[in-house]
Design a binder for these strands. Structure first.
Lengths: 226, 226
DNA sequence: ACCTGAACACCGTTCAAGT
DNA sequence: ACCTGAACACCGTTCAAGT
């Protein structure tokens, strides 16, 4: 095992003529690889050195294409947040259905990449996040939500999406883990009788809770005089 | 400047008899200092070495009292989440008022220590978090929320608290910063007409948004057949 | 224009000691 | 029982070069 661990030039022993040498570094390739790495190893697993390794480049080469690590994270997040509109036949006709679709799609995008949930609220909003907010805002506005209520409506819904994703991204443990949490609760028994009895920590109907919460908010918003 | 930087024994030049030498390390002292450090420097500012410095001890001394850095974070979080019930005269008489109080108090506790918002959803729930959930649960249950609805109600409200705190902890920038965000929005103009016009990014009525969101959720929950 | 290694100033934690 | 320094295996990033 001579040599350093990076730059794994994979040409066998021969001429190296047709070796699949690494394509040149680009911003896009860096970001795509960062997303893969984040998906595979979580947020603590993304390291400039490891990222460079995966790309078959030296660490410092990244810095030509990218500002710094924060920049990589921001770009990865924005990539993952891109909104891909459904076929127009699948778009609900009513505004409520449209809003629910936008929010569910948002939530699903973040849950596919759990690290995104913790990242989103800690950087300035990127293009794709703003796009989603714009769509949501337009839908609500067209539905007749008064201008005065618009921002409050959006932030309330945003809070639900953020709360739901941030929580689930970290508490969606195995049934095993949930059972353990419940047992821990019961151990010095009597401390938490209500949530012990309701089995709060065993609950895992994330989708249902999210939908109902959104539903309540929309009820409240649409009942407002306009 | 000879000597290392830690262990700043502050006895002047004399006998050192009555020097205010550091009190012995204890779990409590470590956690309290960690909270101070987190408040002052944010989550990235907490380092085992810096923490030890503040305590006038060697780094490794901490490990006698504490498992590891994660343990310190969990303990700091739990400390900050302790619920201090108000004087009984200040407790609202109606269940809605009680719930709102519990949630507002929770939110305020987290906003006082913005690092707590990002920490809470990434560790198993500690004693004080469970206590708060228990109180919330009991209040709702006594108010007549059906057992089947209880968990969904709690998680919905939890989502609102988490979303609101996590978001605010990182977006509550100065008026200056908010203006900059708005300008960035207007720059390649026409991309986001609706949120540009509604000045979504300039909005800072966090309290109002939170209260209204909670209100809508409670409306929805209490209108359920029981 | 693009890529590089050496070096710096940090991390958290293991381990073998000290008292 | 409590505290310690040296050492290890990492970090992100600066800088001065290389092609």
């Amino acid at each position: 095992m001579a040599g350093k661990r990076g730059k794994a030039r994979t040409d066998g022993g021969g001429t190296g003529e047709d070796a699949p040498s690494d394509p040149p570094l680009t911003r896009e390739r860096i970001v795509a690889t960062a997303v893969d790495l984040l998906d595979a190893e979580g947020i603590g697993g993304l390291t400039m050195r490891r990222l460079a390794d995966r790309l078959g480049a030296g660490v410092m080469s990244l810095y030509w294409h990218v500002e710094n690590k924060d920049d990589v994270l921001a770009l990865a997040l924005d990539t993952v947040l891109a909104y891909r509109p459904p076929a127009s036949t699948d778009v609900p006709a009513d505004w409520r259905g449209q809003v629910v679709h936008l929010l569910e799609d948002w939530r699903v995008a973040m849950l596919r990449h759990p690290w995104a949930a913790t990242l989103l609220p800690r950087q300035p909003l990127g293009r794709n996040a703003l796009d989603r907010l714009e769509r949501l805002s337009r839908t609500l506005s067209e539905a007749g939500v008064a201008d005065d209520d618009l921002n409050a409506a959006i932030w309330s819904l945003w809070n639900s999406v953020m709360g739901a994703t941030v929580t689930r991204a970290s508490y969606d443990r195995s049934a095993e883990d949930r059972a353990a949490a419940q047992r821990r609760l019961e151990d010095p028994s009597g401390q938490h009788p209500t949530i012990e009895r309701s089995r709060l920590l065993l609950d895992d109907d994330w989708d249902g809770v999210f939908r109902r919460g959104i539903g309540f908010l929309l009820d409240g918003l649409s009942r407002r005089p306009r």
